[in-house]
Design a protein around this nucleic acid. Structure first.
Lengths: 65, 65
DNA sequence: AAAAACTGTAAAGTATACTTCACGTAAAGC
DNA sequence: GCTTTACGTGAAGTATACTTTACAGTTTTT
């Protein structure tokens, strides 16, 4: 699963710390998501999409497993 | 997080077993999702939306945590 | 040049998604 | 009746999302 979190973060000019705070997760989680070390829960995915004012599909690209 | 999995399953006339098979998860997982005992991973959410030919938002209703 | 701000890694721990197995119940068909 | 089918529960185990802490490199600011 690919994602554009880093790009969206850049557009909104957030630091990893700020983004983590807004999403109510740790900075480590933001780093790991950006580095695509793991996929978010659907709850976090919803939060991210809401924060960036777009749909989950805009942030996360699912291409068959 | 609420979801309409049971309704979508009824529309498509799948048994829990069949749905589990199509989603490549266990029947327990289907039961637990329908009973809203836990939320799916984003990967599974994508699979579900794809199977039911709709968007994640159509199946999962996120209302602030 | 030194300090502060930002990004990154690594490791150990906790929470939760998901599996497997075993069992119970109720409805439908033979 | 009994068998099969579909739905449900409970518990123990595994995988992975997420946290916390500590430390390091690089860039920006003073």
């Amino acid at each position: 699963m690919k994602n554009n979190i880093k790009d969206f973060r850049a557009i909104h000019k957030y630091t990893q710390d700020e983004l983590a705070e807004k999403l109510e997760v740790s900075r480590q989680t933001v780093i790991s998501l950006e580095k695509e070390r793991y996929n978010p829960s659907i709850t976090l995915a919803f939060k991210i999409a809401r924060l960036f004012n777009c749909s989950i599909k805009d942030v996360f690209i699912y291409e068959d497993e």
